[in-house]
């Protein structure tokens, strides 16, 4: 990655794809109160995505607005990390994804809030507070499922094992970016270590570290997600909504 455009686009795509996945839970959550909580988090991610994509479009200077970037790019042009595009799975997989994402986004947005780019700093300052809530919510459920029943423990451990390899991509070094993701790793490891321990879960080991999202090489899942998200917009070129 290089330059603030790619960086901003990557963060915007992370937030957008995360929002799209979280919104899939609407009407399906384990409890009605949780339906509302997941929608809140999806709305936060969507709001951050809109700010980031709008700014990315301005940085690019080619006249693309948030909708042009969201609806008129193919999967090879998306720059989100693979973690967010993974299917929701069961509630444990979704909570593992949410928890890891928030444990990355919180230090990221906090660092961004102090960066030299004023627009990114403002977005970081706003999104940081939301990420703190997402982290709280994710951690709260990781603990409950990890230290709940035998079945929930089994499901939560299996979810952590499944999602964990995808976290490494989030911290690929990019010294030229407004915030170098590699610098966020210690904060992430601290948070994850203590929550998993409290949840009686084991932190996975192993060398597998899938990556490619930041350069547009995704899993097979993303193009399906985009096909659904973009179908109506693309069927009516140039229409206003």
């Amino acid at each position: 990655m290089n330059g603030p455009f790619d960086f901003t686009l990557g963060l915007g795509d992370d937030a957008l794809v995360a929002a799209q996945r979280l919104a899939e839970w609407t009407t399906r959550a384990p409890e009605m109160e949780e339906d509302i909580a997941l929608a809140n988090i999806a709305l936060d991610q969507l709001g951050a995505a809109r700010l980031l994509l709008t700014y990315a479009g301005e940085l690019e200077g080619a006249g693309r607005d948030e909708d042009a970037l969201a609806y008129l790019r193919d999967d090879r042009e998306f720059r989100n990390a693979l973690l967010v595009e993974l299917p929701n799975g069961d509630f444990a997989v979704t909570m593992a994804k949410l928890f890891f994402l928030a444990a990355y986004q919180l230090p990221l947005y906090s660092a961004l809030a102090g960066c030299a780019d004023e627009r990114l700093a403002a977005i970081g300052a706003k999104a940081r507070k939301e990420s703190a809530y997402h982290l709280d919510h994710g951690a709260l459920w990781v603990k409950r499922l990890g230290d709940g029943t035998e079945e929930s423990h089994r499901r939560m451990q299996s979810a952590v094992d499944e999602v964990w390899p995808y976290t490494h991509e989030l911290f690929a070094a990019d010294p030229a970016a407004p915030v170098d993701p590699a610098t966020l790793r210690p904060a992430f490891d601290d948070t994850v270590g203590s929550v998993l321990a409290e949840a009686t879960l084991t932190k996975p080991e192993g060398p597998w570290a899938p990556a490619g999202g930041r350069t547009g090489v995704h899993t097979e899942h993303l193009s399906y997600l985009l096909a659904e998200m973009q179908v109506l917009h693309r069927a009516h070129p140039g229409a206003r909504w």
């Binding site: 109160e33 509302i36 909580a37 809140n40 709280d136 709260l140 409950r144």
Partner: peptide
């Protein structure tokens, strides 16, 4: 509202 414990009750109250 309904919640299994106080921590979740507080979170749910915020959302609801």
């Amino acid at each position: 509202l309904h919640a299994p414990d106080a921590e979740l009750a507080l979170r749910n109250a915020r959302d609801l």
